[in-house]
Write a protein that binds this DNA or RNA. Structure first.
Lengths: 244, 244
DNA sequence: CGATGATTTGACACCTTTCAAAATTAGTGG
DNA sequence: CCACTAATTTTGAAAGGTGTCAAATCATCG
């Protein structure tokens, strides 16, 4: 048995980035939560195309959700940061169509899908929150689809950097050296529908223009205004999101 | 006042494509439903970037959800068919970031977002359904993102044709001449992240190979096996979806 | 039967991919 | 702490898919 953290003492809640819950709600979440799991960087949290009764909240670390084509081409659908809920996306025949993989060592709280109905029945407010989380994640996928479909390579990269930087800051990653950025260029390429080579050349150009800097696993935005202008990206203002 | 159809007599429910609801649930849906609206083809159901308290169920007709960049580039996020729920996607500062436009004359049932909480509280089962609908729509956006990011032009088109054909059949559009297909090539281009010209040339080639046929506003699939193979597309098996 | 919108074609430019390989960084065992 | 290997990042060159521009053909409709 690993050391488990009580939901009442969940470090995420202390960040002040989440909408508050009543004691009873947190009690329920605590009972809903089955256990906690640590996943090593590069390891799957959810395997594409498998049956799984598990749902997760990413408590610590980064991850990403993706789909692949039979011939191996991979598309990253969205990146997951601490506080994100995983597994809400629809299943088909009991199997998830996407995979989730940890980018860093990740800690996830594990829930059971078959207990979901209980949550809706006993705490409609939490059900409401789940819908909100689902809808919010779709918003991000929407934005990615807009990027991949209609933005040029440099615009896409600018947009992604601004987006991730904003999200990381919103959950408390402030550091003069920049946010922790555990992403390889291959991930960026896979998220933006670009080839690795072209991703590299484009990033090289942006970095050369002094728009940003990536070093030592950290991303430092040097000219957020220029990046936002380049991407025609009105970064989504982030409000407090629910935490289950 | 227009002629309104009682939810109990909703023609959609008779299709047998939706999960059943209790009498009480339908009563509530009826009370949740504010009124019904007819939207002409090409007219907006929801304006991008505006504040709106309205939610909809598309009762009849086709529509699509989209986002645009400031310079006018447009990306269609997904197509909406009868039975689809509209407006669940997150709002930011009370404004929807996407737009919805009717492709044909459309009939929508109008609900109020501020009544949503009531729904969750009184009928958790319906709240559960809403989450399902939200998750299911995200599934479709996921698939589109995978397409736009990783499939070639002809693969994307093959995938979209199979996908729409399958959905149309699932809701009862069976006709030896093919399904009703109220989409212009510009829509296909905008949905797949392609230019109109290249979309046309690619479709011409596919049609020339006898894979499909579009005529008189109908889509006839001539070789579904080849299309699925081309797109490496395991069409999502459609189960009964909830109807609100 | 014009008028407007949609589809179709051809030519050409260019952004992005692919192929190959070097340079750099990170990771591991001695 | 250094040698060694794997992983990641960078570069260069060339091929190719897709976009852009322009104009013709076709369809729909009042």
């Amino acid at each position: 048995m690993r050391k488990e953290i009580s939901c009442h003492l969940c470090p995420l809640r202390k960040r002040g980035c989440h909408s508050p819950n009543t004691e009873q709600e947190i009690d329920f979440i605590q009972s809903f939560k089955e256990y906690e799991r640590e996943v090593a960087a590069g390891q799957p949290i959810l395997r594409e195309g498998t049956a799984s009764d598990e749902l997760f909240t990413l408590r610590e670390g980064w991850a990403f959700r993706y789909r692949t084509l039979p011939d191996g081409r991979r598309q990253i659908l969205n990146f997951l940061l601490p506080g994100d809920f995983i597994g809400l996306q629809a299943e088909i025949n009991g199997k998830v169509l996407y995979g989730v993989e940890a980018l860093t060592t990740a800690h996830v709280c594990v829930f059971r899908r078959h207990n979901l109905w209980d949550l809706y029945r006993k705490f409609p407010s939490l059900g409401y929150d789940l819908t909100w989380l689902s809808a919010h994640q779709e918003l991000i996928v929407d934005e990615n689809l807009l990027s991949v479909g209609r933005r040029s390579a440099s615009e896409r990269i600018a947009m992604l950097l601004v987006h991730l930087h904003k999200r990381a800051e919103a959950i408390g990653d402030h550091d003069p050296r920049g946010i922790i950025f555990p992403i390889r260029q291959q991930h960026i390429a896979d998220a933006l529908g670009l080839s690795l080579v072209h991703t590299n050349k484009t990033m090289r150009r942006l970095e050369g223009s002094g728009l940003h800097e990536i070093r030592g696993g950290r991303l430092k935005i040097r000219n957020i205004h220029a990046l936002q202008k380049l991407a025609e990206y009105d970064a989504i203002p982030l409000r407090n999101q629910p935490l289950i």
